[in-house]
Design a protein around this nucleic acid. Structure first.
Lengths: 111, 111
DNA sequence: TATATAACTTACTAATAGTAAGCTTAAATA
DNA sequence: TATTTAAGCTTACTATTAGTAAGTTATATA
């Protein structure tokens, strides 16, 4: 997904930016990642953290994130089926990006 | 737009992040802003910079950006109708965010 | 006068998101 | 033992958003 739909005549910087923002910008994507910064979470915990999201889309986004290597899914061998999602190293590094976005939003709302 | 659809039980940081990413994450939004970092551009110049975008969506996004105060539209009094779009102070400050995204993408692609 | 270009607008189709219901496995409770 | 409840999905369908194609207005040039 990060590979497809590349604009053809803009530079590399622009390509890097475009592919990433089109992926991270899909509905709910950002906030799903955001909710995992504090540590691994179970499916229904993520749902509870994100009012308004549907289970269908949550599943779809989690698959996208797995495919891109930003999260890992772990099925725990505990009684009562337990599935956990955790950010990979790559995923965790997005925290910088997210903090910059929050800072920008706050600066904007103050002025 | 930055105001609507707020999740109810996540903290302020999370609200700030959510509203902003849902706005910036709309299709083509990021790359339109990106293309204006180098300075004001005319409608068709933006189009030429962003292969794949349609004129309908470009117009729609430019209106959204105006409404949020991230760009200004300027109709120049030159012969041959000339319209220019320029980032506001708020808009220009997004460059930090964007550079962090590019840096993250490059780090990811290298590893 | 005919054609071209800039910057849109409108109408319509295709893709993506949202809603609602159902499925499966296991544990908890009656 | 039978029934209910919960987690983690899947499927089918509707609504919203994006993409495509054509039309509009005003000036400019051949």
């Amino acid at each position: 997904m990060l590979e497809s739909n590349k604009p053809k005549d803009c530079q590399n910087l622009c390509n890097d930016f475009h592919s990433t923002i089109e992926f991270l910008g899909k509905r709910w994507m950002g906030i799903i990642i955001y909710s995992l910064f504090k540590g691994p979470k179970r499916y229904h915990e993520i749902m509870e953290n994100i009012p308004g999201i549907s289970d269908r889309l949550l599943t779809e986004r989690l698959r996208d994130l797995e495919k891109e290597g930003l999260i890992v899914k772990r099925i725990l061998p505990t009684p009562k089926r337990k599935v956990e999602y955790e950010l990979t190293q790559s995923g965790k590094k997005l925290e910088d990006v997210f903090l910059t976005i929050v800072a920008w939003t706050q600066a904007k709302n103050e002025s």
